[in-house]
């Protein structure tokens, strides 16, 4: 983990998903792994104050470059998303845990929702030459899907849209059961309701007899989001409840075993009582 001033090398708007920034940051690229994130300072002053966490969307070690998907939400996100090639970004990273792909996995299933595509794209690029990879991505409409020309050609790409504008109509959970039968390993990243839905499938699978894909579901790994402060593990703002107690998304996460994370009504479970 280091602090590095990265120079923006490219900026591309991807539909309504966000802006993809290419950033030259060799020190960070050299250490980065899929699922980890970088904490980006939104400016040079203390307004806005907090850094913004972005999961790596691409890691190019040879070129010393990373890519991030930035949604222009709020003053901080807008500032970062509007950086042009040549501009500098203050980066802290890589931070957090990474996805671990089993050496024996032949069929890898990746599930992405919204900007949760970021680490799934890293995995797709990293694993495409080693095993069969299928990427299942869901979005509100076609404008929220990741463009297929930015994926390795050998990766199978399945999409769902809530408005039926592209691919299968509905959410990723509609397409998941069939793909799951094929999978040896499952990794997912997306909004909490999506992860909670996969969590419910997992709970059902726990009670069900052995079936193809059941093992992949039971051992699935997910990357989660939470409102974050320091990203260094000190402020304890970003905790989620897990089977081992409170876990910091910035340190013990963002990648957790699906079965360890506690959900409540499609949201992360929370400790204590709301006054």
């Amino acid at each position: 983990m280091i602090i590095q001033q990265g120079a923006v090398t490219a900026s591309a708007r991807i539909g309504d998903l966000g802006t993809v920034l290419g950033v030259s940051a060799p020190g960070i690229a050299a250490q980065a792994r899929a699922g980890q994130f970088v904490h980006v300072r939104p400016g040079t002053s203390f307004e806005p104050l907090l850094r913004r966490p972005y999961s790596f969307n691409r890691i190019r070690r040879q070129e010393g470059e990373i890519e991030l998907i930035v949604r222009p939400l709020g003053p901080g996100g807008e500032w970062i998303a509007s950086r042009r090639p040549g501009d500098l970004l203050d980066l802290l990273g890589p931070l957090g845990t990474a996805f671990v792909i089993h050496r024996s996995a032949r069929n890898l299933l990746l599930v992405a929702g919204g900007t949760g595509i970021a680490p799934m794209r890293v995995l797709a690029e990293q694993e495409a030459s080693r095993r069969n990879v299928t990427l299942l991505m869901g979005g509100r409409s076609v404008a929220y899907l990741w463009p297929s020309d930015r994926l390795p050609p050998s990766v199978e790409y399945v999409t769902t849209t809530e408005d039926g504008s592209f691919g299968i109509g509905g959410r990723v959970t509609e397409a998941l059961p069939e793909l799951l039968r094929w999978a040896d390993q499952l990794c997912a990243c997306g909004p909490w309701p999506m992860l909670a839905a996969i969590g419910r499938m997992r709970e059902e699978a726990e009670r069900a007899p052995a079936a193809p894909g059941r093992a992949a579901l039971l051992e699935a790994q997910i990357a989660v989001e939470q409102h974050m402060g320091c990203a260094m593990g000190v402020c304890r703002a970003c905790v989620v409840v897990t089977s081992q107690g409170n876990a910091r998304v910035c340190r013990e996460g963002p990648v957790f075993p699906l079965g360890d994370v506690a959900f409540a009504e499609g949201e992360p479970a929370t400790v204590g009582l709301v006054s």
Binding site: L50, H227, G229, C235, A237, V239, N246, T270, L273
Partner: peptide
């Protein structure tokens, strides 16, 4: 164990 989420706001 601390307080329920959210715990931080800008």
């Amino acid at each position: 164990p601390g307080n329920p989420q959210y715990r931080i706001a800008e």
